[in-house]
Design a binder for these strands. Sequence first.
DNA 1: AAAAAATGAATGAGCGTTCATTCTTACGGC
DNA 2: GCCGTAAGAATGAACGCTCATTCATTTTTT
Lengths: 218, 218
Amino acid sequence: MNAIQRRSPRAEAKAESQRERILDAAQKCFIEHGFHGAGMALIAETAGVSAGLIYRYFDSKHAIVLAIIARELEGKRAKIEELHARDDFLEAVIAKFRGWQAGEPEVMNAPLFLEMSAEGTRAPEVARAIAASDALTRQDFERWLLRPRAEGGVGMAADCARRSALLVQCLIEGLVVRAVRDPGLDAATLREALAPVFHAMGLTPGVQAAPPSPEPSP
Amino acid sequence: MNAIQRRSPRAEAKAESQRERILDAAQKCFIEHGFHGAGMALIAETAGVSAGLIYRYFDSKHAIVLAIIARELEGKRAKIEELHARDDFLEAVIAKFRGWQAGEPEVMNAPLFLEMSAEGTRAPEVARAIAASDALTRQDFERWLLRPRAEGGVGMAADCARRSALLVQCLIEGLVVRAVRDPGLDAATLREALAPVFHAMGLTPGVQAAPPSPEPSP
DNA sequence: AAAAAATGAATGAGCGTTCATTCTTACGGC
DNA sequence: GCCGTAAGAATGAACGCTCATTCATTTTTT
């Protein structure tokens, strides 16, 4: 962390806005050129500040990368939460998919997601942050699947919810990859492919969950 | 492409082995440090040659990146083909998943998969190569799903096969991501999560495909 | 001895980072 | 209200280093 002590809360607020300004610029650069491909000079120019000034707010480029990752992980969790706030889960997922394809800044950025995942295989601290965030995300999913339908949940049994949470997590991550690799894939085709799975899992409104067990009891 | 004309087929063969030697080293470096993070000096040292020599076999570092991507895409298709050569699709997928977790060189490398996908969002030629490869992979899947069970296929209807191919592609890509982000996820848990889906799709041996349509006929 | 293969030092550009310097802001005495 | 001043904010040139790439030179092959 940066160790500058600031006098007034007024100054503190401005300092914080500068930090975000730099982070926003860094995020844009990292998306366009990757963590290693984007240089400090480019980040500084994008942020509209001098290169030297960045070091008043961040200790190093690596610190910026970590801050971006932390910010993105936090944002991801919030965005995933939105998925089971809507009554139609399938449509919510497809709406997010469109956002990933278009690279909209309001949703979790897909190229950054890939970059972060790859970076996790090199930097252990990144791997730990990702693992912690993923565990929380899956817990969020599981709680939603467990909650009764009357309370906006799906009303699954315990082991069923655990399995389904993992499955949905894999599927969503797969969709992020697909959005990047096939930006032209249309939503209707995707809907047709996903609908039966979500239907069978009971994620379609008004449909009870089928028991997802490998050997259905006779 | 490199424009060196070689005299004998003997020399041509040795030149080709040098190329592969350099590509093997580059692949290792790219996996460990990313496309931008790995330098020519490191690649040269890993390959056991001088830095200058690499330019006798490749025009530039970018050419090496493209060659690695092309090679990996080709390998990926072959490895995916193996999936529907085995009689138990689920077990085949889980075996691959273990390979992705362990980072085994014999299967498609997961970090490289992420790096390539991210690079596709920046370099149009990479995006084109990936899109072409993905289309072929999905066609392979679709053909397998269409083929009668007697011939080792799944025996699906046409539109059902098209949807299922997309779904399986998304799922597998999701599993690659999951293998990277959760190297500790055990195969048994994953099997329990995947089994009902594969079962419902008729990919479990001896089970007929359920009609994956959003509205099953009454 | 001619040709090909391989070397590794040299090159300029760009990297992340630092720092002496300049500009901006805040504020107490008048 | 105004000014002097001290501290904070911001600059951009400079640093040492590494990068991808080149090429005169040496070693190996034929």
